[in-house]
């Protein structure tokens, strides 16, 4: 429980921390842009929370990238298609 993904739900690796860094945004700034609590950004970055499709689209709009370039189906630590982690 605790609002994190359930134990049997696999985490979805993502590049939010990397993209946030590239955009020069703090977690608080990004959280204001997408309308969530700033700690939710930490949960997302660590793969402890899988976002709703609506939140994924908001992140996609902020970073100017399609969802599939932010979230990748796979296991934690698994490489993205371009070789980055």
């Amino acid at each position: 429980m605790t609002g994190r993904r359930s134990a049997d739900e696999p985490p979805i690796p993502n590049r939010i921390a990397e993209l946030r860094g590239e955009a020069g945004l703090s977690r608080i700034e990004l959280s204001r842009l997408v309308g969530v609590n700033w700690q939710t950004i930490g949960y997302l970055e660590r793969g402890e929370y899988n976002p709703s499709l609506a939140l994924a689209f908001r992140l996609s709009d902020i970073f100017g990238l399609p969802i599939e370039e932010i979230f990748v189906r796979g296991r934690p630590g698994e490489a993205f298609p371009d070789g980055s982690r």
Binding site: M1, T2, G3, R4, N37, T40, P51, L55
Partner: peptide, 10 residues
């Protein structure tokens, strides 16, 4: 937010 609402429900 959505994560907190889900946490609150659980």
């Amino acid at each position: 937010d959505e994560r907190e609402r889900s946490l609150q429900r659980s």
